[in-house]
């Protein structure tokens, strides 16, 4: 069964800025989603991420095995930041999109996961 990562993005401007009520509403949304998708056996994993202010980036020069430099912050300053993700197991993209569209969030990107057992 193929796996899909549902990556949840939020505007950088509002990251970690919500009120307690907004946070509670979003968490309740995730509980509703996890209950439904969990009961269907779709969720394989997932995590919520701390704000990008806690991020550390390791950048290598000269390719994937080059010297590395550790820097503060996310790899790119973008308008949207990754807030968390689910790992979903679905028959095809339509099913993955059907589930991912029930995840609370400003923007959810669905990406197929590489199946190394098939390589």
């Amino acid at each position: 069964m193929p796996r899909y990562a549902a990556l949840i993005y939020e505007p950088a401007t509002t990251e970690g800025q919500g009120t307690e009520e907004e946070w509670a509403a979003i968490m309740a949304g995730h509980e509703t989603f996890s209950a439904a998708a969990g009961a269907a056996g779709v969720i394989v994993g997932g995590e919520a991420l701390q704000p990008t202010s806690t991020a550390t980036t390791i950048r290598r020069s000269g390719g994937p095995f080059g010297d590395h430099v550790v820097t503060d912050g996310p790899f790119a300053e973008t308008k949207e930041v990754l807030g968390g993700f689910y790992l979903l197991e679905c028959a095809d993209l339509d099913e993955a999109v059907r589930w991912a569209s029930q995840i609370p969030g400003d923007l959810v990107e669905v990406r197929p996961v590489i199946d190394f057992s098939q390589m």
Partner: peptide
């Protein structure tokens, strides 16, 4: 192929 867009009529 990679994202498995299904081959079916909705």
């Amino acid at each position: 192929e990679t994202a498995r867009i299904p081959y079916r009529v909705p």
